[in-house]
Design a binder for these strands. Structure first.
Lengths: 303, 303
DNA sequence: TATTGCATATTTATCAAATAATATGCAATC
DNA sequence: GATTGCATATTATTTGATAAATATGCAATA
């Protein structure tokens, strides 16, 4: 790989290192040990080293020989420009397809070749991107050749549908027979939400806000101990991210209210008042739906 | 392609042609027009022609020049041997991995190369199979190299989890704000279930029974008008098929009871008594769970 | 008038060697 | 006692020409 460029995995790792540090509000000088990072991210040391070396070149971290890498400044104060890691070709193609689809500039049925002619790139890249989209659930292979797009959360209608599902599933998660919160995760979530409620959102990007939100809801699903429920919630979150990133990036009042509602729910969970947690959760989802589902957020409504 | 062999798509089409004819209890001599079949199956004429030519060689259908293909005998009376269409390499590898996984002969984490060494086959085949499994939700890519298996519906525990999800989702589908049954589909389902309840299961294989069951539940989900709910139910059905095909192939009394319950639910849906339909559905799922979730059905329980 | 049977245009799969990245172990260092 | 930095072993991706299927249109036919 040419000097200065990263593989897709290395790019991802670089982004995750920054996200982690920011999530934990790491101070300047904080040590970033490669093995711990590798474990947290789920990869081997090697890509972590490459990512850290890159971040050092970018000035985000400092390198001390034989001692390792250290944050150059408080994680929350790293400016947007410095922490912007380039995206791989896969990622770029993916987003171009998302955009085209959200703006209804793509037909409901198409072929790989047609997409290649339109967007360029290699077959291998396109194949990977289509597989990813298939995994996310908004495209499927037709019987022989070709692909068919499925509805995305890209209209008031579909958005309502996704909330309808979540309103049923998430309270069920909390009330499930195996529900059991993980203490450490609960504490971490609480810290995040407190930081947010306490005005921390000033140092947060729209993307970080969305991820924070997703982590909260995913944790509840994970604590249900039901892998199928978790899988479903994850999928809804992926789809929401796609749309919300563009639409409802963040009214500060809305952010503050969401966090305080999240905290209330975490409180109820902590004192094992599950009925109350489920009720609050249901109200929370109902409120979030009302806040977000407004025609103005969507470019065009679908029938 | 060598004479006598079919492409994977052609094999699939051949199987679907037979399944369709049997589903509709087509009599001997029934005409099988290629374009209608192609439309029903979602492909072009070409693979349908190849599949019909193959079925003619196998004696399942008769070919009259310039008139087309016709069932050689009543669809329900086609013997098992005659309608067994060979499986593609993909399909075989898929089932070998399913078996190995269900019997806990595979580690939780592995690599494509390791699987190749173990099962043979080409990288491309394995890649496709892994993508399919990923789509079904019981494997996922690790960050760099390798794959991690997720819990399958292969233990009492996981089976309970899947039913917990369905018990919440399916009644919600029926009660959903957009629920609206499609008359033609409802009639077709009723006919199938009546045939079954009336002793038709004698002419049915275990696989056909499972598919019938899945079609019923999928139809309810589709009528909800909520694509996300449908997607989730579909996924659960895929997984159930994997396991039930091996475990609970079919106690006749159980089959008869299931069909009559299905019919009751369809009745309630037809007279738009949704509350009752949802209630019956919930009871039905509860009963089905009790019938099926018995440790004896599973080779070994997981913790 | 619908359907078949076949021809043509597109699309996708296949191949294996070369290349590139990731996983892992461990002596050196703090 | 943990961590780095680097070497080595595995694993996975890329490539583009060739071959094989699938999609589609239409004259001939029942």
């Amino acid at each position: 790989m040419a000097a200065g460029t990263l593989t897709p995995l290395q790019q991802r790792v670089a982004r995750e290192i920054i996200a982690l540090a920011r999530r934990e509000n790491r101070p300047a000088g904080s040590h970033l040990p490669k093995i711990a990072l590798a474990k947290a991210i789920g990869t081997s040391h090697n890509p972590v080293e490459a990512a850290l070396a890159y971040l050092a070149r970018r000035g985000v971290v400092r390198h001390l020989p034989d001692r390792g890498y250290f944050l150059a400044r408080d994680a929350r104060l790293i400016d947007d420009a410095a922490r912007r890691v380039p995206h791989s070709g896969d990622e770029r193609l993916y987003h171009r397809i998302v955009d085209a689809r959200l703006e209804q500039r793509l037909p409901d049925e198409t072929t790989a070749s047609a997409l290649l002619r339109r967007f360029g790139g290699t077959r291998a890249t396109l194949q990977r991107v289509l597989t990813r989209i298939q995994q996310e659930g908004w495209i499927e292979r037709k019987a022989g050749h070709g692909w068919a797009f499925l509805p995305l959360i890209d209209s008031v209608e579909a958005y309502e549908d996704s909330y309808e599902l979540r309103r049923v599933l998430e309270p069920a998660a909390v009330l499930g027979r195996k529900f059991s919160p993980v203490t450490a995760e609960l504490a971490a979530l609480r810290a995040e939400q407190l930081f947010m409620a306490g005005g921390g959102h000033a140092h947060m990007t729209a993307g970080e806000w969305i991820d924070l939100n997703a982590r909260f809801h995913e944790a509840l699903a994970r604590w249900s101990g039901n892998p199928f429920l978790l899988h479903t919630i994850r999928r809804m979150n992926q789809l929401r991210r796609l749309v919300e990133y563009r639409a409802v990036a963040g009214d500060p009042r809305l952010r503050a209210r969401q966090s305080s509602e999240h905290l209330e729910i975490l409180d109820a969970v902590e004192r094992d008042d599950r009925t109350r947690a489920a009720l609050l959760l249901q109200r929370h989802l109902e409120g979030a739906r009302r806040d977000k589902v407004q025609p103005a957020h969507f470019r065009r409504g679908r029938p």
